[in-house]
Each structure stands twice: as C-alpha cells, then as structure tokens.
Design a protein around this nucleic acid. Structure first.
Lengths: 111, 111
DNA sequence: ACATTATATTGCAATATTACGATGAATAAC
DNA sequence: GTTATTCATCGTAATATTGCAATATAATGT
C-alpha cells in the first residue's frame, strides 16, 4: 500500500525512522555536508553546486527543516541555511543510542 | 519522477543514503532492536512480535540483509537472523563520520 | 510419498517520494 | 512603480515503497 503502519511501533522507533529518512537521499546528504563544511551559513548556492533544479533543492531543504536539523533565515533577497546545533546533537544521540546497544558477542559469528 | 539521480553524487554520499534507507522504517528499526536485545540469534518470532504479515516481515528482513547489516542461517526448518558485527561497526563508522564533521560554532545561533 | 512447518517470492493495489516547469511572494535596485 | 533576483509552492509525471494474499520452496516428521 505504501502507507507505513506507524501505530504498530513505539514513538521512539517512529522518530528514528523519520530522522533516518532525512538522511536517506544523497542530495540531502550533500546539503548537510555542505553546511557542515562551510560552518558559516550558506544559501542556495546549492542549486549550482548540486546538479538539481531549484524547486528540487527547495523541496529537500524543507524536508531537512521539517525534522529540525537545519534552519534558515532571510538575508535580504536570499536565505541563509545552517545546521541547528541543538537538534544536531539530539539526532546524533538518537542514532548513537541504537549503535551503543550492540555488544559484540563472544563468538564472532553468531549464526 | 521518483527516481533519484545517483550519478550526481559521490559514492560515499550514495552509500550513506542507502544505509540510512535501511533505518528509515519503524518495522526495520524494531527488527534491529529485537536482534540487538536478544544477542542470541532469533528467527521469525518477529511475525508475532510486530503486527505485520509474514510476507511483509520477510521483505524488511531482505532489505536489511541487502545492506549487510544482518545475516541469516538456516536452522532446520526455520532461519536464524542476527546482526553482522563487522558490517555493524562499519555502518556505525559511516554515520559517525558525518556526525563528527560538525564543530559547534562560537555563536550558538549561526543564522 | 505425504503432510506439516517456516520462510521466500510473486503479483497487485495504494500511497510516498523524487524531480521539474510554472507560478507566486518578497526584497532590492533603479 | 517597474524590473530583476531569490526562494517557496503548486501541479504533474514517473518511479519507489509498503503491505498483503497467494503461491512457491525447502526441510522435517510420519
């Protein structure tokens, strides 16, 4: 059906899945990396940087903004985007909580 | 179009996006957490555990197997699944490389 | 051989995502 | 006010994902 049965799962599980979705497209990864690299706030040079249409970039930016990982402020006629530090740490923690759950088994091949 | 233009991006970016995709569904998160918790290898008790049809679970398991994060071995008539330790560490590293890229700016609100 | 159990695969319907052109809204420069 | 620039939103087409019933496959027990 294409509809995911969110009600079957915990809020935590849905949250992680939604955050992961933000990372689940190379264009959004590229945008994040670009913002991380140029620590200063960068606007839509992204359109020329990545090879996608302006409307498409805008759509990806919105997806990232929706989960709070980036934020934008109007700067004259253009818009400056940057990482939201608080949310970034939060997201990092959400992922690490899963990764830290794993304890390497005594025998290297469990199956 | 629904087709993602992978050729516009680096292999690293596409890799991360693909791994993130595996985490981008609550059912797959639930499966991973279940395997992490019961460090021993567990087979498809998942069908009764999560509220999804057998075919659907099987499909999610395949998605996780495809990116190498889990592995399964035939155990009589059933199949034991477990985390692949090597790949798990690798995936953890791939995510952390992005998270560690971030250096908190002097001024807390950059935009 | 036959039935049983457990899992995988196939085929399909419904919804989601990706991408882009066209259009709209807001600011700046004249 | 008009024009140019930048970005967001809308509408649309194409592809992907999700979920399940039905069927296939494979091993075990009788």
């Amino acid at each position: 059906m294409g509809v995911t049965k969110s009600d079957l799962f915990s809020e935590e599980q849905n949250d992680l899945a939604n955050v992961a979705k933000a990372f689940a497209h190379p264009a959004r990864i590229a945008i994040i990396q670009y913002l991380l690299k140029s620590n200063a706030c960068i606007n839509g040079h992204l359109v020329s940087e990545l090879g996608l249409a302006q409307a498409t970039i805008s759509q990806h930016l919105r997806a990232l903004k929706d989960i709070g990982i980036i934020q934008g402020t109007i700067e004259g006629v253009s818009v400056s985007y940057c990482i939201n530090p608080q949310r970034w740490e939060e997201v990092k923690k959400i992922f690490n909580q899963v990764f830290e759950l794993y304890k390497a088994p005594g025998n290297i091949d469990c199956c």
